[in-house]
Structures are given as C-alpha cells and as structure tokens.
Simulated scan of single mutants.
Amino acid sequence: MTLEMRELKGDDLFTLLSIVGKLDIKEDFIALFEQNTASAEKVVPMDHQNKKPTKAELGKQEETRIKEEKEAEKRGMEAMAGLLQKVLMNAGKLKKDINSLLSDLTNTNLKEIESLGLKEYTGLIIALFKKPELADFFSSIASLLQ
C-alpha cells in the first residue's frame, strides 16, 4: 500500500511542537543554527563591493557560492539525520504523536497507520523528514530558541 502525504499546514504545528518537546533537542537546534549563521557571516554581498568584478572574480565568487551551498546542504542533512535518529530512539515516547500525525497527513485512520508494514511505515517517517515545510518549521523553532 502506497500512501500519499499532504503538505504540512498550520494546524500540524501543535503535533510537531508536542513531538519536539518530547525529544529534548533544544541544544541540537541552537548548535545547528549557530553553525549556519557563522558560515553566512562570511559572505560579502555583491552590492557592497566598490568595483565591478572581473570575469575571473565572478567565476571565483560562483565557485565559493556553490561550495558554501553544498556545505550548508550537508549540515542540514546531518541535522535532519540526527533528528531522525532522536525520533527513532524515542519512538516509545512519540508513538502516539507520530502515528496521529502520519494518519492526518495521509488522510487515513490511525488503525491503518498502526497496521502498516515496517518498510511502508519507515518510508512514511523518512518522507515526513524530507518535507521542505518541516525544514521551515525547524528553522522557525530554532530562531525562537536563540
């Protein structure tokens, strides 16, 4: 059985906050976003330069931008992997909340979620962690915690 997952919406905030609260990951969020802020401070905006860059300088800037984007993406993936690990390690505490959220996101009943095979169930959890809206949620939470 393949379940389609809808986008996260505002009402999902309360379930997500409950899950995050039970994970006790405040320090993880702060460390992640301090790291991202530190790397963002190195960037010099193009409009703050005095002269027009040469083709060589433009090429170098593009290489730097691509490298920094890859580094930020890697840090983001590492953070999401760490959060997924915490969710899985705390599955007992979070079972009811996670199943409820998955049920709501897939427009199925709780019994169907609970009876999914291991592959389908973990696939749903991974799909949830890959949602761009979830990254937005984590960014918002991190900014509140600083």
Results as ranks from 00 to 15, higher is better:
84 L>R: 09
23 L>S: 07
136 D>E: 14
62 E>I: 04
13 L>V: 06
68 E>H: 07
31 A>S: 15
100 S>C: 01
14 F>L: 13
93 K>N: 15
38 A>H: 10
54 T>N: 02
12 D>R: 06
119 K>E: 13
51 K>H: 10
96 K>P: 03
113 I>P: 01
142 A>Q: 09
74 K>G: 05
49 Q>R: 14
110 L>V: 05
60 K>N: 10
144 L>Q: 13
78 E>F: 07
132 P>V: 05
33 F>V: 02
55 K>R: 11
110 L>P: 04
63 E>W: 01
125 I>G: 13
80 M>G: 00
145 L>Y: 12
41 E>W: 03
57 E>K: 05
82 G>T: 01
32 L>Q: 15
18 S>I: 06
2 T>V: 12
50 N>F: 11
64 T>R: 08
138 F>C: 02
59 G>F: 09
53 P>N: 00
106 T>V: 04
2 T>P: 07
29 F>I: 07
79 A>H: 15
121 Y>N: 08
64 T>Q: 12
81 A>G: 11
135 A>F: 09
108 T>C: 14
112 E>A: 02
18 S>K: 11
31 A>R: 11
15 T>P: 07
46 M>P: 14
34 E>I: 00
102 L>E: 07
128 L>M: 12
16 L>P: 03
32 L>W: 06
118 L>K: 08
94 L>H: 00
61 Q>M: 15
77 M>S: 13
64 T>S: 10
39 S>A: 11
90 N>Y: 00
61 Q>C: 01
11 D>N: 11
65 R>W: 11
26 K>Q: 14
131 K>W: 02
92 G>P: 01
107 N>T: 07
59 G>I: 01
108 T>K: 13
61 Q>I: 11
81 A>W: 06
109 N>E: 08
82 G>R: 07
8 L>K: 01
124 L>N: 05
99 N>H: 07
88 L>G: 06
25 I>G: 04
79 A>W: 04
75 R>L: 11
143 S>E: 13
143 S>H: 15
94 L>Q: 06
24 D>A: 02
145 L>N: 03
80 M>E: 12
131 K>C: 00
91 A>T: 03
121 Y>S: 00
55 K>E: 12
126 I>V: 06
22 K>P: 04
18 S>H: 01
16 L>I: 02
42 K>D: 13
96 K>D: 15
132 P>W: 04
123 G>T: 03
1 M>V: 14
106 T>M: 09
120 E>F: 00
61 Q>E: 12
74 K>L: 10
25 I>S: 10
61 Q>L: 14
131 K>Q: 14
29 F>T: 01
7 E>F: 12
51 K>A: 09
110 L>S: 03
24 D>S: 12
54 T>V: 08
116 L>M: 08
36 N>E: 15
